[in-house]
């Protein structure tokens, strides 16, 4: 039995774009240098992808790996899968210098969808969306808090800290209000 609930209970808002809080989603923060022996195996075992290049994501749908910094990766998977993934990582990287920590519960995740989804984020983040790569994982700020996002065919997925989920929902809803299209 899991009592796990997302930060905002999956609330949503409809403006000129659609905002919904989703999750909880499984996430592991993996700190290791790219040349560490077994890293490719660890990531393959955890999410089934190869090691992502700088600022890029590998994988799709429910399982993927993202580059967070020169020695940090974000592994995304279904919430219930983190235990097995942690065990696989520990096995693959045994004896190496690394740190893996489950961070599923430290995060809030939002979907911003619709044709003008980028406009919602362009009001909050100093990011040039015209030059955002298709597979790019962009870490930046949204108004006053840290955020990371990436895009897909129907919009964007945004991740922030759980404690500021209410603030983030407020920001996204305010930015998506009908009539405020850019």
């Amino acid at each position: 039995m899991s009592n796990a609930v997302s930060a905002l209970g999956n609330v949503s808002y409809n403006g000129f774009a659609q905002i919904s809080e989703i999750g909880p989603i499984g996430m592991i923060s993996l700190r290791a240098k790219p040349d560490v022996k077994g890293l490719d195996k660890a990531i393959k075992a955890a999410v089934g992808t190869k090691v992502p290049a700088a600022r890029q994501m590998e994988g799709a749908q429910e399982r993927f790996a993202g580059w967070m910094s020169p020695d940090e990766y974000l592994l995304v998977m279904p919430y219930a899968d983190t235990g097995a993934a942690m065990a696989a990582i520990d096995k693959a990287l045994k004896g190496q210098h690394y740190l893996a920590a489950v961070v599923s519960d430290a995060r809030a995740v939002f979907r911003v969808t619709g044709e003008k989804a980028d406009q919602v984020l362009a009001k909050l983040s100093p990011v040039d969306f015209a030059n955002l790569g298709a597979q790019e994982l962009r870490r930046t700020r949204a108004a006053q808090v840290a955020a990371a996002f990436w895009r897909d065919d129907s919009g964007y997925t945004l991740v922030c800290f759980r404690s500021v989920a209410t603030y983030m929902m407020g920001l996204l809803s305010h930015s998506a209000m009908t009539g405020s299209e850019l």
């Binding site: 808090v145 989920a165 603030y167 305010h174």
Partner: peptide, 15 residues
Amino acid sequence: GESRGEIFQPLRMTP
């Protein structure tokens, strides 16, 4: 800008 009322600043909340 948007920084007023409920979203004046990010208030952190525990679970």
